[in-house]
């Protein structure tokens, strides 16, 4: 019995130590040096979405707004349907400024998680450290602070359809994009793998 437990334990260890790999992907040489995420890059556009958040089984909704307010800074606001602000941030590659946060949401863990998510979502220019491809995607890998970001660009539509933030071994956050014209994502799904947090954004048009 103990032996079985030990074997299962080691097996489990082996499996969980497997490094993060993309299905059927092969390394591609001489690829691009920089990848540009096009979805929040236009300073002329107010990016407005209906948001649905599911956190540890609790669901809440609201309006998510993002706008590029300078070359390096995005403003991000989250309000309720009634319009009152829950959060208001400004963020760039290195800075994160909280303009406002509702007292009940002013928790370090919440703010750190959102800062990380929004930076992944909004950051435009990424250095490419390695490129891969499989039958469906061109994949660009960017190294960032002990983490790795993978951009999956669909070979047919040429649009960014998935962004994965991973450690050496496993996925941490997966972003999925649905885009009709390759520069604007109508639907964005953010799915955390290590905490029970899902965010879905659907574009609002009047």
């Amino acid at each position: 019995m103990i032996r079985l437990l030990l074997i299962s334990f080691f097996l489990l260890q082996l499996i969980s130590c497997k490094s993060y790999q993309i299905d059927d992907a092969t390394v591609k040489e001489n690829s691009i040096q920089e990848f540009k995420n096009p979805y929040f890059d236009n300073p002329e556009i107010d990016y407005v979405y209906k948001a649905q958040i599911e956190v540890y089984g609790n669901k809440l909704g609201g309006i998510f707004v993002a706008k590029k307010i300078s070359d390096s800074i995005h403003r991000v606001v989250f309000t309720t349907e009634f319009g009152n602000k829950l959060m208001d941030f400004e963020l760039s590659d290195n800075d994160f400024k909280v303009n406002y946060v509702l007292e009940e949401l002013d928790r370090k863990m919440i703010l750190n998680t959102l800062e990380e998510d929004f930076r992944l979502l909004l950051k435009v220019n990424h250095q490419v450290n390695q490129s891969f491809e499989n039958s469906s995607f061109n994949i660009f890998k960017s190294n960032s602070n002990h983490k790795f970001i993978y951009f999956f660009v669909n070979k047919n539509s040429n649009s960014l359809t998935k962004l994965v933030s991973a450690t050496k071994h496993k996925e941490k956050v997966v972003f999925e994009f649905e885009s009709k014209n390759t520069t604007f994502a109508e639907i964005i799904k953010i799915n955390h793998k290590n905490i029970k947090l899902k965010i879905e954004l659907n574009q609002i048009t009047n």
């Binding site: 107010d46 407005v48 707004v65 706008k67 309000t79 349907e81 319009g83």
Partner: peptide, 15 residues
Amino acid sequence: VQYKHMDFLSKDIET
């Protein structure tokens, strides 16, 4: 009709 005005946006959000 609800208009959410935020100074940094170019248009009010209308619902």
